[in-house]
């Protein structure tokens, strides 16, 4: 049971990483980040079956923090949309060396 849950969590995390790396839309990248966070949550819940409640407590912290992060992140995405009328990272490239 534990092995399957951890494998699923690793697969979801990898999908999230690949998504962040290949997609160029800020909202979709953000969704992939959320997927990664929830993949980790799955690991914590699975592991806490063996080690006690610590992992489940951690999941609550992660969910709270993810909500706060989403609020700030969406605000930042709105602010860039107001300037550039796009959330596509390919068109957002003022800062270059």
């Amino acid at each position: 049971m534990l092995a399957e849950a951890l494998a699923l969590s690793a697969a979801l995390f990898t999908i999230g990483v690949v998504g962040v790396l290949i997609r160029r839309n800020a909202i979709i990248i953000f969704m992939c980040v959320e997927l990664m966070l929830n993949a980790v949550n799955l690991s914590f819940v699975a592991l806490s079956r063996y080690y006690g409640a610590d992992g489940q407590v951690f999941v609550f912290f992660v969910m709270t923090v993810a909500a706060a992060e989403a609020a700030v992140g969406l605000a930042i995405i709105i602010s860039i949309f107001r300037h550039r009328k796009t959330v596509n990272l390919q068109n957002i490239n003022l800062l270059r060396g």
Partner: peptide, 28 residues
Amino acid sequence: AAEGALKYFLLGAFSTCFLLYGIALVYG
């Protein structure tokens, strides 16, 4: 500033996920 903040946010959140997964595996 908006562009810098967006990049910082996306990469910061991305890196937090790695930190968190690392914590999960060390816990495991």
